[in-house]
């Protein structure tokens, strides 16, 4: 079963690498952020699988931190003083 989880983790890592293309090409800032958001969720899934595969519970805590703090960057992006969206609202 460990091998299987590891295999799925490898597959997910591969989809992340493919998804990098969206960060490279954009074109909008939002597109790039959305891609990073997908990475975050995929990364969490990988961490959970690794935690199961290597039987390391601290890895699960790292996954917890990633999900907990995921909103921070985007909130900073849309709410920073001087941000464009803000002025138009």
């Amino acid at each position: 079963m460990e091998k299987f989880y590891l295999g799925v983790a490898c597959f997910l890592l591969a989809t992340m690498i493919v998804g990098l293309v969206r960060v490279f090409v954009g074109p909008d800032q939002e597109d790039r952020l959305v891609a990073v958001q997908l990475f975050g969720t995929t990364g969490v899934a990988i961490l959970l699988l690794l935690a199961e595969a290597f039987d390391a519970s601290s890895v699960r805590n790292a996954a917890l931190l990633f999900t907990l703090l995921a909103v921070l960057a985007v909130v900073a992006f849309v709410r920073s003083p001087g941000s464009l969206g803000e002025r138009e609202e």
């Binding site: 989809t15 992340m16 998804g19 293309v21 959305v34």
Partner: peptide, 10 residues
């Protein structure tokens, strides 16, 4: 579903 998401993203 992750794969589908990536395909959608691209």
């Amino acid at each position: 579903f992750f794969m589908a998401g990536t395909v959608g993203l691209i």
